[in-house]
Computed example of a mutant assay.
Amino acid sequence: MDRAYYLNAVNALKEHIRKGDCYEVNFCREQFLEADVNAPQHLFHRLNQLSPAPFAAYYKVHHRYLVCSSPERFLQKKGSRIISQPIKGTAKRAADPAQDAALQQALRSSAKEQAENVMIVDLVRNDLSRTAVQGSVRVEELFGIYTFPQVHHMISTVSATLDDRFHFTDAIRHAFPMGSMTGAPKVRVMELIEQYEKTRRGLFSGAVGYITPEGDFDFNVVIRSILYNAEQKYISFQTGSAITFYSDAEKEFEECGLKAKALLAALGL
Rank of each mutant, 00 (worst) to 15 (best):
R29L: 07
L66G: 12
L142C: 00
F245R: 15
P86G: 01
A94W: 01
Q49R: 15
N220E: 09
R29K: 08
E116M: 00
N229C: 13
N117Q: 08
R165D: 06
S70M: 07
Q85G: 01
E30Y: 01
A265N: 11
I82V: 15
L103W: 13
G215C: 13
K14P: 07
Q232S: 13
Y23F: 15
Y210R: 03
E15R: 12
A175V: 13
L107P: 04
L142R: 00
Y59G: 07
F245A: 14
S84A: 14
N117C: 04
L162H: 11
N11P: 04
L192G: 06
E113M: 01
D21S: 13
F166L: 05
F32D: 14
N126M: 08
E231D: 13
R188H: 14
V133Y: 01
N26H: 00
H174E: 15
G79Q: 06
M154N: 07
V25L: 15
N11W: 02
E24F: 11
F168E: 09
S110L: 08
G215S: 12
K259T: 12
L264Q: 14
M154A: 04
N11K: 14
Q195E: 14
G144E: 00
R108F: 06
I17F: 02
G257I: 00
Y6I: 05
S225M: 04
K233A: 12
C68P: 08
R46C: 09
E231V: 04
S129R: 11
I211N: 04
A115M: 05
A175P: 09
F217Y: 15
E214I: 00
D163R: 05
H42Q: 15
A207W: 09
Q85I: 00
E34D: 11
T199K: 11
Y146K: 05
L258Q: 12
S156A: 00
K92W: 00
F217G: 09
